[in-house]
Design a protein around this nucleic acid. Structure first.
Lengths: 121, 121
DNA sequence: ACATCTGTTATACAATCAGTATAACAAACA
DNA sequence: TGTTTGTTATACTGATTGTATAACAGATGT
């Protein structure tokens, strides 16, 4: 899986990394049981510090996407609390939809946008 | 319009403020031409520093929701670049949907969630 | 047995951000 | 003439981000 970091972005590096790994899982490029590079390997490959990768992994572990095993390294392991997840998404969507509504983006257009994004799965 | 700040939240105060004002515009509690309290008034009312309110106002101005006029104070003034807005929303939705997909949230459930949120408008 | 790699933890440093605080300015207003 | 407005500047504390170096114990391979 290809990982690209935009060092000019205002988004924190560890969050860019976290997002791309989530994208990878969603698109099945990464699957349950797959191993990620060690924090040291990935850090060197990208050209960033070990602790920055470690922070991304720690966040992903906290969010229920990874298990960190000393034997197998970082392994994709999905811990799904769906009710919790739906509520989290509802809260984030609420602000995003309000923002879009102020920009004259209609409900139908949001639906269409979602279908377009799902086309890539 | 009622504004409530959660001081225990990890979300920055100026972002909570920004979000609530956007919510207010989306629900028509705030309309084009309406004036917001001055940075000093609102700061005192909430119990935070003037510059924190000023930052929220500055962000909202930057995002095309407010005009800051020395005569009329902070005035709701919507500057809509829809193409730009749709692309911004698409990028944010992409990460959010990937996240939800990892949590077994289906496309249909997202659609339903959106309709539920739109019920309140 | 030995060296290597793993996740993990600790500490330290610089840069930036968040929030507060005080102050000053010119324009607007009553 | 005061007062309030947005705006700008400076300064301080504390948290966050990213880098850097180091150490530790468990696991792995030779």
């Amino acid at each position: 899986m290809l990982i690209e970091i935009d060092f000019n972005s205002s988004e924190a590096i560890y969050m860019q990394l976290r997002n791309q790994i989530i994208l990878g899982i969603a698109t099945s490029q990464l699957q349950e049981g797959d191993s990620l590079p060690s924090v040291r390997q990935l850090a060197e490959h990208i050209g960033i510090n070990m602790h920055t990768v470690n922070k991304a992994y720690t966040v992903l572990k906290q969010e229920g996407f990874l298990k960190l095993d000393r034997r197998k390294g970082a392994v994709i392991a999905l811990d799904i609390d769906k009710l919790q997840a739906v509520e989290t998404m509802r809260r984030e969507l609420q602000v995003m939809l309000a923002w879009g509504r102020c920009k004259n983006i209609s409900r139908e257009e949001v639906h269409q946008l979602i279908d377009e994004i799902y086309e890539d799965y």
